[in-house]
Simulated scan of single mutants.
Amino acid sequence: MQSLNRVRKHRVLGLAIGLCAVLVAGQVSANGAIGDHVNDLKGHLNSYSEEVNWLVAKFGEVVDTYEKKGQKATDTKVMVEYWEGVDFHSAIETNYVPVYASIWQGIFGVKQAIEAGAPIAKVREEQAKLNQALWQGLGAVKLASQYQEKGLLAKVQTTEVEPTTMPEILDDIKHRLDRVVAKYAEKLPDAATSIVHDTYLHRFEGVEGALIEQDAALVEDLEKDFNVTLPQALNSKTSVDDVRKVVESMQAKLDKAKSLLQEAEKKRKDVF
Rank of each mutant, 00 (worst) to 15 (best):
V110L: 05
L230R: 00
I169F: 03
M166V: 14
E125T: 15
F108W: 08
S102I: 04
H89M: 06
K245C: 08
G18N: 11
H175W: 07
I92Q: 02
I107P: 00
V271T: 13
L177M: 15
A233T: 10
I114C: 05
L222E: 04
R176E: 06
V228G: 01
L230P: 00
E61N: 12
F204G: 03
G35V: 08
M166L: 13
E205Q: 15
V207S: 03
E263M: 09
D171Q: 11
A140V: 12
H37F: 08
T165H: 04
H89G: 02
L230V: 11
Q157G: 06
T94W: 00
L15S: 09
P231N: 05
K258E: 06
G35K: 03
E126R: 13
A57H: 08
T164L: 11
V207G: 03
R244H: 07
A116W: 00
D198W: 02
Q2D: 15
P98T: 07
L134A: 04
M166E: 09
L170E: 03
R176N: 12
K72Q: 14
K69R: 12
Y82F: 15
V38R: 01
D242T: 14
L218S: 09
L222Y: 01
P163S: 05
E81P: 07
S194V: 14
P189A: 10
A30N: 04
S90I: 09
S236T: 12
L254A: 07
V56C: 05
K258L: 12
Y147K: 15
I92G: 02
V243F: 03
H89T: 04
A210K: 03
Y184S: 11
A118M: 06
S239A: 14
A113I: 15
K58N: 12
K122I: 14
E84N: 13
K9M: 11
G209A: 15
D40Q: 10
R124V: 12
Q132N: 12
W54D: 00
D198P: 03
Y82P: 09
Q132R: 08
S259M: 10
T76A: 08
V56M: 05
V110Y: 00
A30K: 02
E160A: 06
S49M: 04
Y184I: 07
D255C: 09
G70F: 06
A73G: 09
L153C: 10
H175L: 14
N53A: 15
K122F: 11
A264G: 06
A191T: 08
A154I: 09
A113N: 04
R179G: 10
T158Y: 02
Q2I: 07
L138I: 10
V156F: 00
H44F: 08
V56A: 07
D190A: 13
D40T: 10
V271F: 02
Q27P: 05
D225T: 09
Q127S: 12
S49L: 04
I103E: 04
K111I: 04
